[in-house]
Design a binder for these strands. Structure first.
Lengths: 162, 162
DNA sequence: CTGTTGTTTAGATTGAGTCCAAACAACGAC
DNA sequence: GTCGTTGTTTGGACTCAATCTAAACAACAG
């Protein structure tokens, strides 16, 4: 039951920078600058991963990012993609989504939540009324809350309509 | 290999459905009755898993349940624990919690949410104001929402206090 | 340009979970 | 009680995600 495809594009694919870089690598000086501004060294692997995440759009697994980065001409290893994603999330440039199976990543944007369709398996964004974290508070006296993530499950509009 | 050495007695066969037993041993008649009431066959594996989940309490991984079930004297295979947990969740007798890493399970109780401490890694329950699902609704017109799970992250009272 | 220090790499490794077909047991029917 | 149907269990091989390793390497401050 529920064949569950990969996460689809709930986002229009983010257009890549029209001007191609002379070095033939994904991610140009702009990407490098954002990495440094976030306190990270602007290594080739991190630039490729960030660029891949942006050009893919949506919620992607590490494997998808790896493929996209390599397809983009970068020479990146699997381990580096995991390292880079970890660092990007820690630096606030990317977000992780808790999903069963493989973890999914997306470029950072204002705080929001996710809807996972039980039929097509696609994940889509759900705006957060508050827009920043933590948007909910647990009834847990003494706790220090960093964030509250909400995962909705059900049938997406497309699957519910048919 | 060593096919002659299989552990022979998988089903203790101390089950007698004719008269209602009142004592609640692990995997006893009471547990069996709840399984049947939920539409499941009362197999030894499922009784052991449900009993283990209950005696352990809290939010447990499949591995922990397996160990507890085996420690409790039952002869259960790993695959059966996964099968049983899947079935218990489907039948509404147990709940899954989406956590990074291994999935966690708990005996069913009124709808609630979870707090995951980033320091000690412990998970605790957070009451849901609504108490039934779906307790939140996404701004996603046309979607059919089954449930909304909230995962809080931060420092639990114990870790925040020190 | 150079040194320090953080990063990358391929491959081995761990860990969670699934798949398989044959053996087996639950339970309604008799 | 016994039987037959049908659902379950089994262990081992397997898949897939993710981490670990130590040596080679590259970023960037000085």
């Amino acid at each position: 039951m529920t064949p569950a495809n990969r996460t689809g594009r709930s986002y229009p694919a983010h257009n890549r920078t029209a001007t191609t870089r002379t070095h033939g690598e994904e991610g140009g000086a702009e990407t490098a600058g954002r990495l440094r501004a976030a306190g990270l060294r602007a290594t080739a692997a991190r630039r490729a991963v960030l660029a891949a995440l942006e050009s893919l759009g949506g919620h992607r697994t590490a494997e998808e990012v790896l493929e996209a980065a390599q397809a983009g001409g970068a020479s990146v290893s699997r381990a580096s993609v995991f390292n880079a994603l970890r660092d990007l999330v820690a630096a606030g440039l990317a977000l992780t989504v808790d999903t069963p199976g493989a973890a999914r990543y997306e470029v950072a944007r204002p705080w929001h939540h996710h809807f996972l369709c039980r039929s097509c398996g696609r994940m889509s964004d759900v705006e957060c009324v508050v827009g920043r974290k933590p948007c909910l508070r647990p009834d847990l006296p003494g706790a220090e809350v960093d964030e509250a993530t909400v995962l909705f499950r059900g049938l997406c509009p497309a699957c519910a309509g048919s």
